[in-house]
Design a protein around this nucleic acid. Structure first.
Length: 619
DNA sequence: TTAGGGTTAG
């Protein structure tokens, strides 16, 4: 029966003024209910609602049941306002009605807070008690707003109402505590669950991955396989863990696992494929990332962004920009978002493309109406400041609608130091950073960044007393400089190098190789930046010939050239940011030695407990 | 008598 014919077939059944027999009313409600199942949009639902109002008695339980259905349908058509109107028109609400409305709010971005308010109202009114359906919805809303204290209250209510053993409720709790970063509480709920589902495992694994506990996440994944088959959600978390560890061997294993175990649906899923792209990019294999991207039948914005970010963070700015051109081209016609522009600005930043960076920043605002966020400002300020346009960078910081964070101030300070600008200005900037909460957070728990930069400012102005004061302050506060470190995996063993490091057993050969590299680079006309502080005493044999500044990555590259067969790609992981100078030299070494060299920066180093990495030769 | 859980990048 079509809803368009609603009034005619049902009209003869409109209840008379006198009370209808129970069976007639029952049939009538039943017929409206079956019509409700066929509603496909709000206009049909509104007709049905009007008809229900006209032809039923509001106090009948069957009518209340119908209103519940109308409420549910209006929220499923995303008309939460209408759902609220229906709700407000009813005097006594069933648990189902409360639950439906709470759920509608929990799923609506702009009403997440209301979900919790509604739940409180439900308790206050006391006309119906929360049940096992209520809590998962409320918890979802709490998780979304990172409402830890609200969530704790709800947790108490769950125990009080006796739903502590419900698997859906517990999954909601794991998700909530996981979202708030309370991994121990999430784990406690997980461990104490009388029954677990696939979602329980996925939620716990996801929480661990999101907060950087990659090892534990992979450990849990292994345990999970004893009782459940992983699904697409699981595999995305596993791929993120591999990406976080920067372990291409693990990531490649996960890719193979995916292809072996799953049907086309899971393996071809856009979200899973995007995770694969991200994993390959973060593990340094842009070739594989591109291969996955090219093989995708369907792509979304995130697929493009993942590639752009991948190229950008590896210093391959031209390819990042080419991908952007392709995505906005008429054929693809994908509209970029704020993340796309972060990628483009990072690309420009890594390579010092100041004008391009300015163009993208303007394009983002002008052509795509995207409000620049702190991250965009961070990139552009760093870019223009590094290029020496300190005044322009400071003006930009002053014009920002939000408060600059310590990272931005540090970009300015760094640029001031390099340019040897006024000490007063540097001191002023340093005052904005030192001791701030953001600085502590943004520099891995120490605020060495600003102190080190400031001591460099004083050193460049030959104010040695002030250098001493800063160093003393640092040692008094127990602050140590976080050294740059590069790592390379060969035959499953990770070798780490610091700048000017001479601790490796192969140091002698490494420095000889560096000399070879240096000579080859000079032979093609490369002139190292002499203004950089030379590490002339770095070699064991006291040779002072090697005058290039020894970034840790160059040591790792030399080590790779010695120990890997010719033309084997060399993959380096670095804990800090890779500078433009490094990108340029790496490109040249790569050209001269006819070897692919990839340097991935900002990697959190990982060491397996037995001191090894199971690195297979997938490069 | 109605229904339910877990995602997107820096």
């Amino acid at each position: 029966m079509s809803i368009g014919l609603l009034v005619h077939p049902l009209s003869p059944h409109i209840p008379p003024a006198s009370s209808p027999s129970a069976s007639t009313a029952g049939n009538h409600h039943q017929r409206i209910l079956s019509l409700a199942e066929t509603c496909s949009d709000m206009s049909q639902l509104k007709q049905l609602h009007a008809f229900t109002l006209r032809t039923t008695y509001p106090e009948e339980p069957a009518t209340l049941f119908l209103y519940g259905k109308i409420l549910q349908l209006s929220s499923s058509f995303s008309d939460v306002n209408y759902a609220f109107r229906v709700f407000d028109s009813i005097e006594n609400h069933s648990s189902f009605m409360w639950n439906t409305l709470i759920r509608a709010c929990a799923h609506d971005v702009s009403r997440k807070e209301e979900a919790f308010m509604l739940y409180r109202k439900m308790l206050e009114r006391g006309e119906s008690s929360p049940d096992k359906h209520t809590f998962p919805f409320v918890l979802k809303a709490c998780a979304y707003i990172f409402g830890f204290s609200e969530g704790k209250q709800v947790h108490c209510q769950i125990v009080k109402h006796g739903f502590g053993g419900d698997v859906y409720v517990n999954n909601g709790l794991i998700h909530l505590y996981g979202s708030c970063g309370c991994l121990d509480l999430a784990r406690k709920v997980f461990d104490e669950m009388p029954e677990r589902s696939l979602v329980s495992w996925n939620s716990m694994i996801d929480a661990l991955v999101r907060f950087g506990e990659y090892d534990s996440a992979l450990q849990l994944f292994r345990e999970m396989q004893r009782s459940f088959e992983p699904d697409g959600y699981t595999m995305q978390s596993v791929l993120s863990a591999c990406a976080g560890l920067g372990s291409l061997s693990l990531g490649t294993w996960a890719h193979a696992f995916l292809l072996r175990k799953y049907d086309v649906d899971v393996a071809m899923d856009v979200l899973v494929k995007n995770s694969l792209i991200e994993m390959y990019c973060k593990c340094g294999s842009l070739r594989m990332a591109e291969q996955v991207f090219q093989g995708m039948q369907k792509r979304d914005l995130a697929s493009w962004n993942a590639m752009i970010l991948g190229f950008a963070t590896h210093g391959r700015a031209e390819e990042a920009m080419n991908f952007f051109d392709r995505m906005v081209d008429k054929r693809e016609n994908v509209r970029p978002n704020s993340v796309t522009f972060v990628g483009l600005l990072i690309a420009c930043n890594h390579r010092g493309f100041v004008n391009k960076g300015r163009q993208y920043f303007d394009m983002m605002v002008r052509d795509y109406c995207i409000e620049p966020a702190l991250e965009h400002y961070g990139c552009i300020v760093d870019l223009i400041a590094r290029a020496g346009y300190i005044t322009e960078a400071i003006d930009m910081v002053m014009s920002m609608p939000m408060k600059p964070d310590a990272v931005i101030w540090r970009s300015l300070l760094d640029a001031c130091c390099k340019k040897g600008d006024s000490v007063e200005l540097s001191e002023e900037i340093a005052r904005n950073i030192i001791g701030t909460k953001e600085d502590n957070e943004s520099s891995n728990g120490n605020c060495s960044g600003a102190y080190v930069l400031l001591s460099r400012v004083y050193a460049s102005a030959s104010r040695w007393n002030d250098v001493g004061i800063v160093r003393k302050l640092m040692s008094e506060h127990g602050i140590r400089k976080e050294p740059g470190c590069s790592s390379i995996e060969i035959n499953g063993i990770s070798h780490e190098f610091f700048a000017g490091d001479t601790s490796h057993p192969q140091t002698k050969q490494i420095y000889q190789q560096l000399k070879v590299i240096d000579d080859r680079l000079r032979s093609i006309g490369y002139l190292p930046d002499r203004s950089q502080a030379p590490l002339v005493d770095a070699t064991n044999d006291g040779s002072k010939e090697y005058s290039l500044r020894l970034h840790s990555e160059r040591l790792a590259i030399a080590f790779g050239l010695i120990n890997l067969p010719p033309q084997t790609p060399i993959r380096i992981f670095k804990n800090l940011r890779v500078c433009n100078d490094c990108h340029e030299v790496t490109k040249l070494i790569s050209k001269v030695f006819n070897t692919e060299i990839i340097v991935r920066d900002r990697v959190r180093f990982h060491h397996f407990k037995d001191g090894s990495c199971s690195c297979l030769d997938y490069w």
